[in-house]
Design a protein around this nucleic acid. Structure first.
Lengths: 115, 115
DNA sequence: CTTACATATGAATATGTGTTCATATTTGAA
DNA sequence: TTCAAATATGAACACATATTCATATGTAAG
């Protein structure tokens, strides 16, 4: 932990950068958001919901996963404020919560397509 | 797997959406990129490199991790084409590879700060 | 050539996580 | 009320992964 590069040249720079770093808590929270996107099942769900509001079984059909797996993932997505839900009788419809979700997806897609 | 919602209303919609879905491979690759961002150590590295080009030991000092841990993570970041490296004698300097990395970080940060 | 520094790497460990399976809950219909 | 459909949930399992520790590699200096 906290080893220091001995070349005096870097020590000053490193201390400057360390002073400008965001709080660990904030960087941790940002990483947590990306972690949610970092699963192919959740990514499928997000892309499907980008196309339309959908219920759980339809999402399971579209993604090729089980109802249970999708339900678990939807709970995670909802806790992370990435999707919202609307109940209509027995059916629960899910949709994306805001524009950030779409923006993040689009930039991620751009990055992948440029490799 | 591939269960279908029995309410005939949804079946048509679900099939439409399924037809419009991106290939699994692409969605998988996008998820892989986000997975790289979804770790607080790597997020610290990315933010530090956003401020300045840095060598391994300086990154270890700045992030409060060991040299070994940082070296392992830098390898992952490099394989994902998120950082590049430049060798100068014994020292290896790392920096961000392109603008997408910064864009993704900024939008992730925006999302977190609006919660 | 020997030493010291910066980095990389492999194995082991511990921890986190996604899926499955069984089952509970909720709601509408018969 | 009884049944079936849609969803949610908990436990168990399998798998991935981040860190640590020891050590190897490469490089410059003495």
């Amino acid at each position: 932990m906290t080893e220091e590069c001995l070349c005096g040249l870097h020590n000053k720079l490193a201390k400057k950068v360390k002073a400008k770093m965001l709080d660990d808590d904030i960087l941790f929270d940002i990483a947590e958001v990306f972690k949610i996107f970092g699963d192919s099942t959740r990514m499928k769900i997000i892309y499907a919901l980008k196309l339309s509001e959908l219920c759980v079984l339809d999402l399971a059909y579209i993604t090729g996963s089980t109802q249970s797996a999708i339900s678990h993932q939807l709970r995670i997505l909802k806790q992370a404020s990435l999707v919202k839900s609307r109940k209509d009788g027995k059916v629960v419809f899910y949709s994306l919560k805001d524009e950030h979700v779409i923006k993040l997806f689009e930039i991620g897609r751009e990055h992948v397509e440029e490799l």
